[in-house]
Structures are given as C-alpha cells and as structure tokens.
Computed example of a mutant assay.
Amino acid sequence: MTLIELADYGPDFIANPYPYYAKLRETGPVHQVRGPDGGRFWLVVGFEEGRGALTDTRLTKSPAAVGQEHEPDLVSGPHVLALDPPDHTRLRKLVAPEFTARRVESLRPRIQRITDELLDAMLPAGQGDLVDGLAFPLPIIVICELLGVPHADRDVFRAWTNEIVSPTSPAGVRESTVALCAYLDELIEAKRAGEPADDLLSTLLRARAEDGDRLSADELRGWAYVLLIAGHETTVNLISNAVRTLLVNPVQLAALRADFGLLDGAIEETLRYEGPVETSTLRFTREPVSFGDTEIPVGETVLVGLASADRDPARFPDPDTFDIRRSATPGRSQSHLAFGHGVHFCLGAPLARLEARIALRTLLERCPDLALDLDAGPYEWLPGLLIRGVRRLPVRW
C-alpha cells in the first residue's frame, strides 16, 4: 500500500482537511500515512470502519501491550486513555459517579454566572478575541473549580495543555507533561495533608468502591492529568468552532436566533461538522486487523479519523452541509463519533455540551450583531491531528 505523506498536502490540509479525507475515503476505508511530524500510522477514514475500530478488542489502548512505549503516558501515570478493560473499567468506575447527569446539571448556575462575568468583562471593548475572552476561560475556570485548582494557575495550564494536545515539538510535549504532572503531585499532596474539601480531587482521594478499592497516587495523578486536559481543551474548541461555523453560515445562525429550541441541534451539528477532536487517541494492533481489503499487521499504530468519519456520505446525507436541524430530520440524523464510541466514550461529554449550550446562547442573546472581524487576518490553526480549532477567533459585536 502506498504511504500517504500528509505533509505533502501543505498548510491547506490543516486549514481544511475535509476534501483530502473525502479523496482518501473514495479509495479505501484505511490508509497508511505519515503525519507532518514524521510519525507513521494507519488512519481509518470511514464511519462504519471507524466506529468498529473504536470498540475492536484486537486494538489495544496500551502501547506496552505490543511492546511500545509512549513517554507522556509513562510520566503521567496510569490513565483511562491508555488502558484497556479490566483496568480501564476499574478506574472509570471510581470516577464516573462524579459525572452523572444530575451532578453535571447541578453546575448549570455556576457555569451561567461565569459566562455572564466573562461577557461583562469582554463586551465593552466592542471587538476582541473570542477564544481569550470566553471560549478558553470558561471551561478552564469550570474544570479548575471542579478539581480544586487555584484560578491563578490557569494561564500556565493553558501553555502546558496547548503543547500537549497541539505539540510544536516532541521536547515541548515532554517538558509540558513533566511540568504539569509535577504540579499535580504537589497539589494532590497539599490536599491530602489539608482539611477535607469539597472538590473533585479531594473526593477522589477519599473515594472507595464497594469492595474497598481506591485510587493509588499514580492513578490519581493520571486522572487529574486527563480531566484537566480533556476537561477544557475540547470544550474551548467546541465553543469557538460553533461560533465560527455559525458566523459563516448566516442562514443557520438566523434560524438559531429565531428559535433557541434549535440550540441542542446546533451543538450536535457542530460536533459532527467541525468537532474539536480530529482524530482519536492512539490504538495499537495486538493481532492483525482488516478494514476492507487491507490488513494491518501486529504492533502497528492506528488512529480513527473522527473528522473524516463524521463527514462520510455513506452515513450522513449531504455531509458537507452544516444543518442545525439535522438531528431532528428523519433520514438525516445519525449519531456522530465526536465523543468516541464504546467503553472509551468521553466521560465529560455532558459537561462539554452543557458549557457549550450556555456559552453559545448567552453570547448570541447579548450580541445581536456578532460577526467575524474580517480585518484581523488569516486564522492560525492548531497544529497536529488531535485537536481541530484556531488559536484566536477575532470577532466584533
């Protein structure tokens, strides 16, 4: 099979990968590719094949299971993004009670207050960067409060997590991971030694399953690492992608402004059409796996192209059309893969959806003249294949 060099596509692939994914889907559901960073892997581009890969037990999440090492995971400690059942099941079971629908819904008043305060500070200027003003601070404040992390540290967290999910170099990833995990170790120890507190880290320190099982120190750090990164990076780009996509689709924006009953549909369509996660996290073949006529050997790295799968015309009619009524239209509504599928489905999906709904509705209600700032120059797209979004979103209101 021909090795696809993604770097040959140039910067246009980062700005708009969808036409390239379409061409790949036309020639097969899986391709051997080399990423812009030089890493080689197999990319699954079809919806049905991608959904199947996300639940295929022949694909392991643990690099150690196939004799590989992933250095950031070694630094962070055991976490659910790099474990298979039963270890994954055990760790998720200890944390899942903190992310039930009822627990998440209880955060609504606080999320609304934070959103209002951020817009109070942002709107007098008349124009600005929506990422800095709203899309970034809202989820980082929420996750920091939830975990019990001081607000003053959120800017340094942004630098660390940006490098981890949208790396500029392997050395940068390692340095950021080491710094973040060292910080989390200190924070956990401070909470262990201090008075009982009503935050998630303190709760997890005390958490025990019915059989007395509890998180080890390394497992607690691993959970804090995943929750801090996944708990805000994806939501930052869900919010900014939703606003950007609506502003370049004025008919859809007008429909939403006229009927906020379409809000849930707008969020789900953003997740499908321009979701914040472009590819899955790593999987590895522990035995040969076939997609169509292509067999992937043992010990190979596999990524599921979530952005490609969610534009697959075999699954979604008119996939390149942004339609906020899609979820309510018979024959057009199909579940997307933006939050994954199977046992690794995103634990924080309800929280991300809630934050995005509140942010988007409040912004549109308070800014009837919201528009892109066309004088601000081209977008700076996030590098890498994991997170889909822009560093800045200049807007006027």
Score class of each variant (00 low, 15 high):
Trp223Gln: 13
Thr2Tyr: 03
Gln252Lys: 04
Pro63Val: 06
Ile239Asp: 02
Leu204Gln: 07
Leu24Thr: 12
Gly39Ala: 12
Arg326Ala: 10
Asp129Met: 06
Ala53Trp: 06
Leu347His: 00
Cys367Glu: 14
Asp185Gln: 08
Gly172Pro: 10
Phe47Tyr: 15
Gly194Ser: 02
Glu163Pro: 07
Gly35Met: 13
Asp73Gly: 14
Ser240His: 10
Arg92Ile: 06
Thr362His: 00
Pro383Ile: 15
Ile4Ser: 07
Arg51Gly: 04
Ile387Asp: 00
Cys367Asn: 02
Val156Phe: 10
Val178Pro: 13
Arg206Phe: 01
Gly305Tyr: 04
Gly126Cys: 04
Arg90Ser: 13
Ala190Ser: 06
Val226Thr: 15
Ala101Thr: 15
Asp73His: 09
Val304Asn: 07
Gly194Tyr: 02
Asp73Tyr: 14
Arg325Asp: 12
Asp323Phe: 00
Gly342Met: 02
Lys61Ser: 15
Ser166Ala: 06
Thr177Lys: 00
Ile14Ser: 15
Ile229Leu: 06
Pro383Asn: 05
Arg192His: 08
Lys61Trp: 14
Val243Arg: 06
Asp264Ile: 11
Val149Lys: 09
Leu180Ala: 10
Ile188Leu: 14
Tyr9His: 14
Arg103Ile: 01
Gly331Glu: 01
Val343Asn: 07
Leu374Phe: 04
Asn241Trp: 08
Glu48Ala: 12
